[in-house]
Write a protein that binds this DNA or RNA. Structure first.
Lengths: 222, 222
DNA sequence: TGGGCAATTTGCACGATCTGCAAAGTTGCA
DNA sequence: TGCAACTTTGCAGATCGTGCAAATTGCCCA
């Protein structure tokens, strides 16, 4: 159960940045150690996707994944808390971006809903794991209830940060309850995810967000 | 993974109704067998709640639960698919109620949003497991990410039924995409759950639903 | 009331998940 | 090169969850 720890780690922008960066890292090129770590992680996710697509989540054992990726089972669990996490490739999704700060500051338009839309679009446009991989993960998640649940729970984990963000923006006299606004933002994110996935990964995030918002508005006001 | 089977079972209103009801059942009193089954199930849930509240989800073993409830481990797994399910006490939540039928038929008001509100309120007012138990389960779920995931997964299971319900209502020319409407209904349910839990279980479901809807509307139209 | 029938419980064996620990292997850097 | 820090790996072990068959229990009818 590393979730809480991960959430705490988010305060650091890039986990690989040590207190004292090495020369290689300062030069922009990551050290061999870090490159290997990322490659292994990616290889594990890739192998997991491939096998699960072929055989289904329950028919694939961690052992098989590790064999395919060329690492030991123990190493697998150094990278992921569970088999499911390897499919989803969950990484703390930094909510500390320029877009987030701008939202908190009251921008970019000053209109809450429009700015929520911007925020969600920006977040979706900056996935922490590569569009390809994300698309496969979503595809699998929409077929395996357990994975979808994990994904939703993972989003719930970010709720705290989101509430904080909304509170920063709304200040001391919120016209709306921050938790409802945050919950709505997450729903918006999820719905857009699903629509984007249903569209076969085509189109840009902002367009999908806008379309979902339009739908909801007409649902709530017709 | 019994979920799909459970979903199929929903078509039968009450699982204990055999093809041929016994005399005792016809008389209103359940047979000893059925009474024992329910008592055991309740005892298991109660023991699980008590132990998990005291020691935390991960520190409680199924063995300990069974010892406390006086049944064998194997029996535990005859009742629940997993330890988590025992905490949540998940039971198929019948979506085949009068309220559901009325919604599908276009009632009670004829206005989609208002009727969604009615539907959600009705569903929440008719919990399949007793308010007390439901409150404890929610309380624990909001603390344990894994439980939250299970809970969300369980709700996802009902999505299919919900989509079907919405499709029945909207007919051949839906003004709104059924899946978005269904997703919104589930969001509404979840948000109301959370608000109800945050309020310490006080108040009536319809009031909470109405309050959430009011918030959302003002958020989307201000 | 007793016995057949069906549902339920239980013990047991087994495969899979996941963790802690310490040894062995790699990388970074002076 | 050589030390320090990090990572991988094997191994033992706790727990979870399932299939199977025997024992138990409730149900119903003669």
């Amino acid at each position: 159960m590393l979730h809480l720890v991960q959430q705490a780690d988010v305060s650091v922008d890039a986990p690989e940045q040590d207190e004292r960066p090495t020369l290689a890292e300062l030069a922009g090129a990551l050290g061999l150690r870090e490159r290997k770590k990322r490659a292994r992680r990616e290889a594990l996710i890739e192998a997991t996707h491939r096998l699960v697509e072929r055989d289904g989540l329950d028919a694939v054992t961690v052992e098989a994944i590790c064999e395919a990726a060329g690492v030991s089972v123990r190493t697998f669990f150094n990278y992921f808390d569970s088999k499911d996490d390897a499919v989803l490739g969950h990484t703390p999704w930094p909510l500390r971006t320029e877009a987030a700060d701008e939202f908190a500051a009251g921008g970019p338009t000053g209109h809450l809903l429009a700015d929520l839309e911007h925020l969600v679009a920006a977040v979706l446009d900056d996935p922490p794991m590569g569009r390809q991989s994300l698309a496969r993960a979503l595809e699998l998640a929409s077929r395996e209830p357990r994975l979808l649940a994990k994904h939703l729970a993972w989003m719930e984990q970010h709720k705290g940060q989101l509430v904080e963000l909304v509170e920063r923006r709304l200040g001391d006299e919120p016209g709306h309850p921050p938790d409802v606004v945050a919950a709505f933002a997450m729903f918006l994110t999820h719905a857009t995810f699903m629509r984007w996935d249903a569209a076969g990964g085509q189109g840009r995030a902002p367009d999908h967000v806008a379309s979902v918002v339009r739908e909801l508005r007409s649902l709530l006001t017709d």
